[in-house]
Amino acid sequence: MTFRCIIAGGGYSGVLLSELLSEEGFDVVVADQYIRGGEIGLFSRLPVFRDYYNEFIAEYRDMGADFLKAVVRDVEGNERYEVTLLINGMKRREKFDFAFICTGCYDKNYFLSGIYGMRPAGIFSLQNALELIARGYRIGRDVLIFGEDRVLEVLEEMLVKLRYSTNLQGGDEVIVRGRERVESVLIDGEEFRCDTLIYYAGREEFNPFKLPGIKAGNINAKSYDYGNVKEDVLRVFKEFRKKCKV
């Protein structure tokens, strides 16, 4: 008897997990709103990021999975899962033996990132800044990057390459000044002129439908370090396999 698995989310974690489960003989479906891509897809569309995440991009490209263009809207049950899928706005229910949640994470909001003061245009989370640049927008001219993480150095390098002027600063609290557009920011009392602020202060689990199931990948790792993401998927898979054998 083959067990049917559904994986919510077709990013790096979902596809890697699908590959691992398929090798074990499971029948796996990966559901994602946008056939392929996820965050690794986003990185592959950005200079510098493309090189920095090269290993994961290549790995993702070489892996296969049985994709379903759908949003996993609901997961019910314990023994066997009744899964509600949203396909082109239509709901469909299907039964699966196992449900895995690989929906990733999102950057903490401005408030939890310590951004205070005014809220004019020109304030972006790291994730939104990357997505906008990948979609071909220019997000400003003088960019202040706020936070402390290796990925922000990658961001700075990319922005320089794209002819932005940049300044990377860490600290506890930012106070934004400006009415219509960012004019300057105060970081722990020191003022920096800029027209754009990109902030990053960690990530949070992205699971808006509160889907129950086995969580794997960046939903647990909450990171821009895909080494951690990969490690989490492998860990979850090992534990799952152990349980199945028992």
Partner: peptide, 26 residues
């Protein structure tokens, strides 16, 4: 979570809107 901002902005652009937050110069 605010993750959909770029997507919303792209729809705004497709519908012919200026990509402004609220005020005239934003």
């Amino acid at each position: 979570c605010g993750k959909c901002l770029p997507h919303v902005m792209e729809i705004m652009e497709e519908e012919g809107l200026q990509l402004r937050k609220d005020f005239s110069g934003s």
